[in-house]
């Protein structure tokens, strides 16, 4: 579970995040929408423990991030906007390395299963990442996140730059992870993808969460209109 309690972040006089209160339960997918600089990535970085809050607290499965920055890493996985990884290693080698860092020593078969589960074609497993498309690298990123068996997943613009087919495949995987009880926070610009995959949507403006709605309550057009009116 993810929880933000009056979470605030200031950079000098600039208020990057203002008093965010949020709970994302297991199985929920919360999509944060907003323009650049609205505070989406700041929120993700606060949950990851990469930056410290000015006030308030971020909690992962009830553990305060600021107090236990290493402990919370066991409970979460993260997929950035662009998964570059190591271009001179194969998909399998990348997955093996990152899952080993997290303390999981999988067999080659288990690693192959994880990549297949993330939607990567088996003929790509032993190819170097330098030859992968962005969508394929994103799938390796998903496999790395899944391999951690984390119950919290943080996604920062995960479908940015993906073609529609790859985006669809990505949405499928995210939904299946939520169905397995993972709490997911996803920052995105993609209104239609957010409505399609998320259970709840929050719209941010200048560091404030100004609107929270259920994804099913609005059509895609209504959501777009609301978004444009809000930001």
């Amino acid at each position: 579970m993810l929880e933000a309690r009056s979470l605030t972040k200031k950079y000098g006089s600039h208020l990057a995040l203002d008093n965010l209160n949020l709970i994302i339960k297991p199985g929920e997918i919360f999509a944060l929408l907003g323009q650049n600089g609205a505070g989406k990535t700041t929120t993700i970085n606060l949950f990851l423990g990469f930056i410290e809050p000015t006030s308030g607290s971020a909690l992962i499965n009830g553990i305060a991030v600021e107090e236990h920055p290493q402990e919370i890493k066991k409970h979460l996985a993260y997929i950035p906007e662009t998964v570059t990884l190591y271009p001179n290693l194969t998909g399998l080698e990348n997955l093996q390395y990152f899952s080993s860092l997290a303390g999981f020593n999988y067999s080659k078969q288990q690693l192959s299963d994880l990549l297949a589960h993330a939607g990567l074609q088996s003929q790509s497993f032993d190819q170097k990442l330098a030859g992968y498309s962005k969508g394929m690298r994103q799938k390796v990123g998903i496999a790395i996140a899944v391999a951690k068996k984390a119950k919290v997943l943080l996604l920062d613009e995960p479908t940015s730059g993906l073609d529609p087919k790859a985006s669809n495949e990505f949405s499928e995987i995210i939904r299946s992870l939520a169905a397995e009880g993972t709490a997911i926070l996803m920052a995105t610009h993609d209104i239609f993808r957010a409505r399609e995959v998320a259970t709840s949507i929050g719209i941010m403006r200048q560091g404030n969460l100004v609107s929270t709605i259920s994804a099913q309550d609005l059509s895609a057009n209504e959501l777009e209109q609301l978004y444009l009116q809000t930001v």
Partner: peptide, 14 residues
Amino acid sequence: ENGTLKIILTQGIS
């Protein structure tokens, strides 16, 4: 630069 630092640190590496 290439973003792997965030993933490494998220894997629980200090």
